[in-house]
Design a binder for these strands. Structure first.
Length: 586
DNA sequence: GCCGTTTTCGGCCCGACTGTTTTCAGTCG
């Protein structure tokens, strides 16, 4: 039995919860939580780290956790974990997901009422037994029932497009309020994580009560969870929770850094601050030692705050504690790609397969977005569920594209459609079209759309075989994941990256908020190996082209610059990069 | 349990809000 780093992280996370239930030392508990996070963001396979005895090099992983992870990865089991788990029922873990319920209360409910699952809890709440426990009351009982209902309804996380739309409206309305000074999104949304737990907003004001009051009465607010003068939490209409913090104007840059996170990034900033003799919190710098003569620097912006700590400004997307602080100190942070660098894109669909708009409609939408070229990549024939094209229909589409490119409209706009296909990678790694057909196209996106359940070795070999075809320009949505909906299929990503580098195959960032695949955590490795990126919207409608913005966010999280991303090249340079594999061989 | 140019012991972030208390514990971020 093999364990991915995510599985191992999950086990460590559960150990932390079990230790909490046992009332263990909080710092020991945090050590397990920290280690779980560290393993979640590895850039190489955990088996490799274990085999090469390099786990101990990871910060937050020491002797004890190294031993436990090694046992888990090599034997598929961990006796320490199993013994801990034996003292509590399996359903206990789900209770931790309920809002307002933590280890202390779970333990009381378990010990005194025998609660061992969400269903048990629902029953004892309904029976009124919870309100009778010491430290509990009527309100807690009612809140728990509500938390159970919410848990079932929302399951916690949201795709970024949902949150982005809500954020835009809330920010606009808050900005218009006269008591609002500075305002920003914060949290994981500002860091452009692939999914968002809740939306954090930050405002500066000298009249916080007015702003908080305005916020909780906003039409998008469905329910108020907590409400104080400086901190309010609400549930928004489309599901996510939204937290608003109101701070004084002079506190704003500190609060913005603090609430943008990540938590790990902040901890590093604080310890760095202590090196200067300053204590850093969400409001200010202050002398670290009581009665110290040390003075703290005046700060008006985030940039000044980083500068005071001897760091270049770190863009929010990079604040994940993945080396950004060392890079900022050394002055070698990458100049991240921006929307304005984009000159075109690839991988869009039309009514020929499963898209909702025609070639010309898609082209005009791209022109309106200011793009110089748009790659069309409709599905190939094996994707019959998506009305995939056979060789004949593909040839017709290519002819239509070539004709459109000759029109006055396109010529005057300096715009070109680029003819391609999203060609299925068949089960054995062969492609859905013959090489003669592929040779008639400007480029080829190769993607897996079937047999998702094959083993990792077989899937990896399948994809690598496709990349070895000189006609395959780029790899579509590498893992096939649908965020919050379908797990990625098993594939050895470092091995794929290696072959992408050796064959000159471009890898896509699929910018659809359902995919955001290849994941941002792998891009620094890909970039180091020299692999180029294409940011593709996988648009099925003209509106879908705007998903490119989410792809930009992921590219930035992956430390990519405009020179790493092929669609930052101007129209005149496109044919060269798209035909490089064919020309120079694999 | 982790960590270290305050280094092998003794720290480890801490403030806001809620509910149940009557001065504070639990939860969250």
């Amino acid at each position: 039995m093999s364990h991915s780093a995510a599985d191992v992280g999950e086990v460590l996370e559960q150990i932390a919860q079990l230790l909490e239930l046992k009332g263990e030392n909080p710092f020991k508990i945090r050590a397990y939580t920290n280690a779980a996070r560290a393993l979640d963001s590895l850039s190489e396979p955990i088996e490799k780290l274990v085999a090469e005895e390099r786990l101990g090099n990871i910060e937050g992983v020491g002797k004890a956790i190294t031993e436990k992870v090694t046992e888990l990865v090599t034997t598929g089991r961990l006796s320490y974990y199993e013994e801990l788990k034996a003292s509590f029922p399996e359903g206990i873990f789900e209770l931790f997901e309920l809002q307002g319920l933590g280890a202390k209360k779970i333990k009381a409910l378990h010990d005194q009422l025998g609660v061992s699952s969400v269903e048990d809890l629902e029953r004892v709440c309904a029976e009124g037994k919870v309100a009778e426990l010491a430290g509990f009351g009527e309100k807690t009982q009612t809140k728990l029932l509500k938390a159970i209902e919410d848990h079932r309804k929302h399951a916690g996380r949201f795709r970024i497009n949902v949150v982005a739309d809500l954020a835009e409206e809330l920010l606009e309305d808050l900005r218009a309020h006269e008591a609002v000074g500075q305002i920003s999104e914060a949290g994981s949304f500002r860091r452009r994580k692939e999914t968002i737990g809740d939306l954090d907003l930050l405002v500066s004001s000298t009249r916080p009560e007015e702003v908080s009051e305005f916020f909780i009465h906003h039409p998008l607010v469905e329910e108020v969870i907590v409400h104080g003068p400086t901190k309010s939490s609400v549930r928004l209409k489309d599901g996510p929770q939204c937290d608003l913090r109101v701070v004084k104007p002079e506190e704003f840059p500190f609060a913005l850094v603090y609430f943008t996170g990540s938590k790990e990034h902040n901890i590093r900033l604080r310890s760095r601050s202590l090196d200067h003799g300053w204590s850093l919190n969400e409001y200010r710098f202050s002398p670290a030692k009581e009665g110290s003569e040390i003075t703290v620097p005046p700060i008006h912006t985030e940039r000044e705050l980083y500068k005071a700590l001897g760091l270049d400004f770190i863009p929010p997307e990079l604040r994940e504690d993945r080396g950004e602080i060392a890079a900022a100190e050394a002055g070698v942070l990458p100049n991240l790609i921006e929307w304005s660098n984009l000159r075109g894109t690839f991988h869009c669909h039309t009514t020929a397969s499963d898209g909702k708009n025609s070639l010309i409609e898609m082209a005009r939408a791209a022109i309106d977005l200011g793009l110089e070229y748009l790659g069309i990549a409709d599905h190939s024939k094996s994707s019959f569920q998506a009305h995939g094209l056979d060789a004949e229909r593909l040839a017709e589409q290519v002819a239509e594209i070539r004709d459109l490119n000759q029109t006055k409209e396109f010529q005057q706009a300096g715009f070109r459609l680029v003819a391609g296909t999203e060609c299925d990678i068949l089960k054995n790694g062969e492609l859905d079209f013959d090489d003669e057909v592929l040779a008639t196209l400007d480029y080829v996106v190769a993607s897996v759309h079937s047999s998702f359940t094959m083993g990792e070795a077989e899937m990896t070999a399948r994809i690598i075989r496709a990349m070895e075809n000189p006609h395959v320009t780029m790899l579509g949505h590498l893992t096939g994941r649908l965020l919050l909906s379908r797990e990625p299929y098993a594939v050895n990503i470092p091995a794929v990256i290696e072959v992408a580098a050796s064959t000159g195959t471009i890898i896509e960032i699929n910018a659809s908020p359902w995919r955001l695949d290849m994941d941002w955590r792998w891009w620094p490795l890909a970039k180091e190996k020299g692999v180029k990126c294409a940011i593709n919207p996988d648009a099925h409608t003209i509106h879908g082209l705007q998903d490119l913005i989410y792809g930009i966010g992921i590219a930035r999280k992956g430390w990519l610059t405009k020179s790493d991303v092929v669609n930052c090249l101007p129209l005149g340079k496109i044919d060269e990069i798209l035909s490089a594999k064919k020309k120079h061989g694999v």
